[in-house]
Design a protein around this nucleic acid. Structure first.
Length: 428
DNA sequence: TCTGGGGTCCTAGGACCC
DNA sequence: TCTGGGGTCCTAGGACCC
């Protein structure tokens, strides 16, 4: 039987902020999405006040003031840096790790010699708390879906003290536990499925586990059938252990204010291409096509709506920012219509393939392409050292012109990634 | 006034082929 | 009057995740 752990940072963004703002401990705190749009993370105290995930900040503002809720803009460099630290530390606990998101990873503990994995996971928690100051919960089970569920239990039920190992339970204890948990807590079961399940009398995790899997496949999909199997302990979700290359790379942002002109949109698209192309080179891939999308604000249904997108194939797979940018701006020109208030733009790099498997271009000037590769490499290094966008493609515009950039009113400093923003300790 | 960004996987349906 | 069947490939869109 395989044994898989899912380790997950509690209220990740809030916990990261509290590392450098101990004054926020025990206070209700929320972290907002880009443009300070809506709530994406809540402290336990904020949850207790009834603040729900995803609520728009402008609707919460008054309530927040009344109840002393502290709201912070999201500080992704900080979260990404803490994430890297925690992931490398966790990698020492298993030879096989799958980083699933910024704040959680799976560890394969099948080969582990400890019989008591709960003990092992407690050690993990303690070390992470001591070295990084972040609280985590650990769920352990025989499949990824069950490990997610175990993690849910570890978080929600205090008596587990942050670690829940389902493989240590006997059948009746497991049945009783699964019968307590609503089916909506299962990984892969969202709102739509929950509603449909209710009508079928499937209310708890146990109900779903014991449902007829052929029926589930027929009525829903093969995806949900696999979920049912995984709940029974049959491994269906193949693990993506260590650095799997992404299949698509996206970069998009809502604007800080409505944008009307082609020039501003082109500037934004160039900025996003720069970001996406960097990620592309970091995973050592080439893109075969680019999708460009622009959209008006869907929350203003009375304003004229226009949400076009276009996929432009590249004549030759590439990771060259300037080349990708030229193609993207050409795509933008094809879909752009004047007269709309655009709220967001984005680019997606598609048809990715490993750089080593690139088909040769019969007509390529090899000297030229080598120089371009070196140029990209140099650009990445300079931007890595002095901050993103020190060097970029011509259309990207200097920062003072980029008036469409997102709003972040309450951002904390880059405590761990910029020398100039290090926390200062004063002896009193 | 103000509603995120970045992903995965699957399905249905159309175009096209013999 | 009567107009096949089976296959592939591609794309758009849905559902879900954090």
């Amino acid at each position: 039987m395989s044994r898989i752990a899912l380790v997950d940072v509690n209220n990740c963004y809030v916990s990261c902020e509290r590392l450098f703002r101990p004054d926020l401990l025990n206070k209700p705190v929320v972290v907002l999405s880009n443009n300070d749009g809506c709530v994406v993370a809540r402290s336990a105290e904020a949850k207790a006040l009834g603040v729900v995930m995803g609520v728009p900040w402008f609707k919460l503002k008054g309530f927040a003031r009344q109840h002393g809720i502290v709201a912070l803009s999201s500080n992704y460099p900080l979260y990404a840096d803490m994430s890297n630290r925690i992931m490398s530390l966790l990698a020492t606990y298993s030879a096989r790790q799958e980083v699933y998101s910024i704040d959680e990873c799976f560890l394969d503990l099948t080969e582990h010699t400890h019989t008591d994995l709960t003990d092992y996971a407690r050690t993990m928690r303690l070390q992470i708390a001591k070295w990084l100051g972040l609280p985590v919960c650990v769920g352990i089970a025989s499949t990824k879906t069950l490990a997610k569920l175990a993690n849910h239990v570890a978080k929600k039920q205090p008596l587990w003290q942050g670690v829940c190992d389902l493989t240590a339970l006997d059948k009746s204890a497991l049945d009783a536990l699964l019968a307590e948990i609503p089916v909506s807590a299962v990984w892969g079961v969202g709102q739509q499925h929950t509603q449909a399940f209710m009508k079928l009398g499937i209310a708890t995790v146990r109900d779903l586990r014991d449902a007829d899997s052929r029926f589930i496949r027929k009525r829903f999909s093969v995806v949900l059938e696999r979920t049912v199997q995984e709940l029974r302990g049959v491994v269906c979700l193949s693990p993506g252990w260590v650095g799997c290359a992404k299949q698509q790379i996206m970069s998009s942002r809502s604007f800080g204010r409505p944008v009307h002109t082609f020039a501003d949109l082109a500037e934004a698209v160039t900025t996003y291409i720069t970001r996406a192309a960097l990620k592309l080179r970091q995973q050592n891939s080439l893109a075969g096509a680019i999708q460009v999308q622009i959209r008006t604000n869907p929350h203003q249904p009375k304003a004229p709506q226009y949400n076009p997108s276009i996929i432009v194939p590249l004549s030759q797979p590439s990771a060259d920012t300037l080349m990708l940018n030229a193609v993207a701006v050409r795509g933008l020109a094809q879909i752009f219509q004047p007269g709309y208030a655009y709220a967001k733009a984005g680019v997606m790099l598609l048809e990715l393939l490993p750089a080593t498997r690139a088909p040769g271009d019969l007509f390529a000037d090899l000297g030229h392409s080598t120089r371009r590769t070196t140029l990209m490499h140099t650009m990445d290094r300079i931007n890595g050292k002095y901050g993103a966008n020190v060097i970029g493609a011509g259309v990207a515009g200097m920062s003072e012109r980029r008036s469409w950039m997102m709003k972040q009113g309450q951002r904390t400093p880059n405590y761990t990634t910029r020398w100039s923003e290090l926390a200062v300790v004063q002896a009193v």
